[in-house]
Amino acid sequence: MELPADVKKRLTLPAEEHFYAGHTACQGCGAALGLRYVLKVYGNKTIFTIPACCSTIIAGPWPYSAFNAPLFHTAFETTGAVIGGIEAALKAKGYKVKGEDGIMVVGWAGDGGTADIGLQALSGFLERGHDGLYIMYDNEAYMNTGIQRSSSTPYGAWTTNTPGGKKHFLERKPKKKVIDIVIAHKPAYAATASVAYPEDFMRKLKKAKTIKGPSFIQLFAPCPTGWRAPTDKTIELARLAVQTAYFPLFEYENGKYKINMPSPSKEPKSLEDFIKLQGRFKYMTKEDIQVLQEWVLSEWEELKKKAEIFG
């Protein structure tokens, strides 16, 4: 469908849809929205690799696909390696990778597939300098298998294997900072993004396409199903995560950190605004919330310092 010229002008995102309806994501899925943005920006001049995760289901069972782009489904821990192989093959065939008219090689994996089982392949991808983009859509647990904690699950969260219970058996480890591990590789480009800020996310996607070398984006993608949150709160939660500095938006490029605008410019909002909308935090005591709040603020201070020193 061709949109009228004045509409196109006012739209801040590309009008073309390459992510098709009829996909089988849950209601209010942040990951599905993320995929829609990625496909809008890169169009079908993209080769996707998706490991076994929610997105396998979202893309559709044979003979269906929600993607109007080449898509390769692979094993859980192999995303980094497979996109390396695809990129090498494209180069060997003489195809242009990245740049204005080049092909984008994109890996799209969840937090479990990235921070846990896929960390080694991700490290290899970054270290070897493949000309691709790895997007970790972070919904903070193994959602596809039925909400088990990953190393990206935050302190105090309920999951099916941190079920609360009489012994108060909740997640007791802070969220793993995958982005810091990524930056330790000194990649060409690394950034955090959020589905609540599509313009920011899409700007980062465009940037990743122009920069030579491996890029990484950690996309905050709320999961109403796994977070025990109302399906209409996906964007609100993603926005609050940024405003509370729970998930600040920033970029790393050429050794420099840059905190992006949607992140709090003054005092971050209270974390309770973010917590109270989600059933997964309902077992947290006041002390638990305090622990998480302190962690958030100390990480936020650390990031601000990095931006100050390496800005």
Partner: peptide, 21 residues
Amino acid sequence: IKVESEHSAISACVGASAAGV
């Protein structure tokens, strides 16, 4: 591709072969 494991060696081969080489 000097991969970081055999798992990645075959995965990279799978990616390359799927890309038609």
